[in-house]
Design a protein around this nucleic acid. Structure first.
Lengths: 184, 184
DNA sequence: AGAAAAGAGTTGGATAAACGACACAAGACG
DNA sequence: CGTCTTGTGTCGTTTATCCAACTCTTTTCT
């Protein structure tokens, strides 16, 4: 990528995160962002249509980085337990960033973006599942289940939650391919 | 100034000072500077002919900043004592920067650049002295005198040196216009 | 409500910076 | 010694960014 683009996007991201740490997304103006990032307003618009698109792009990037950080992504089906644990680890390593990026009105975007990323990862491994509605259901089930099991039970201790969710995920993993049940 | 130029020069300066803090000027290559500053080599050459010119430019800038920091530069002749004290203060506020920029082979450049800046300041106040050799002599005398009185007697305590140099400067200031002596 | 200020987005033209290639010089190394 | 690497400095082309000006919308203030 062009060095100029890299630097520009970097300073936009920095400025955005700095502002986002102090105020909700909808109160951030393009003008102040550009002043902080020391770029021209028109330069911002060559990269993002508006602030929300910028936030969405950064959200996707974080999720991408999280998934790229998992040692053995190919084990998403075969070693679901280890995969889940690595996923939690990768998220934990970015807790501060996640907190600022996904706070306020962006609360629900983390799990949604994660779901999309995880499904993409899964379907790259098993393309034949992509058109199978049952696979989508099972994946959504385990992803959202794991997420909210985590969110709603933090007081149980992180390790315990991760351990249990990991084992539950493995159980669910045994259901694949889910469509098979319907044609015995 | 164009925002692009500002940012480029800024990152060049930062990279240079960072390198300069670790190695002598003549060991700094254009290549590593550009890598650190994250700019293209050709961009460097559009601003500076070589590393030495860069260093010289930064040296001048520091001296400019020091002089611009003196509350009442117009008092260079009438209130030499206060002027001297303010000058020492302004230098002290940049001691770290000065140390890295004027170390090694650049040792002597601080006082030389300071002399040029102070003379320029003086001659802007009294343009009629600019062509007068005697004025140059007296100014060089007081500037270098003050500088080395400071450098060679740091163990006497800063305040004492500044106080004495300030009073001496005032004595010398009374000699102006120096050419007058020769035509009684 | 109505004026004034501030922000959103767009556009056209100017230009700084990036890129890649090049010839050349200097130092390292076997 | 020759070769090989590393850095220097330049050039032509492409492109990202800047800038200034503009309209339109939103917010703020009285």
């Amino acid at each position: 990528m062009d060095l100029r683009v890299e630097k520009t996007k970097g300073s936009i991201a920095n400025a955005f995160l700095s502002l986002r740490g102090r105020k909700p997304l909808e109160k951030i103006t393009v003008k102040e962002l550009c002043q902080l990032a020391r770029i021209n307003k028109s330069t911002f618009y060559t990269h993002y249509p508006d602030i929300f698109a910028l936030s969405a792009a950064l959200e996707r990037e974080v999720v991408e980085a999280i998934l790229a950080d998992i040692p053995h992504p190919e084990g998403i089906f075969e070693h679901t337990e280890a995969f889940t644990q690595d996923l939690f680890r990768a998220c934990n390593a970015r807790s501060a960033l996640i907190q600022t990026l996904f706070s306020g009105s962006r609360e629900g975007r983390l799990i949604e973006t994660l779901e999309a990323g995880l499904k993409e990862l899964a379907f790259q491994r098993r393309p034949e599942y992509r058109q199978d509605p049952a696979s989508h259901i099972v994946l959504s089930f385990v992803i959202y289940g794991g997420y909210y099991a985590y969110r709603k039970n933090l007081d149980c201790g992180l390790e315990r939650v991760v351990d249990l969710v990991g084992r539950l995920s493995r159980q669910v993993g045994d259901f694949f391919p889910p469509g098979a049940e319907e044609q015995p």
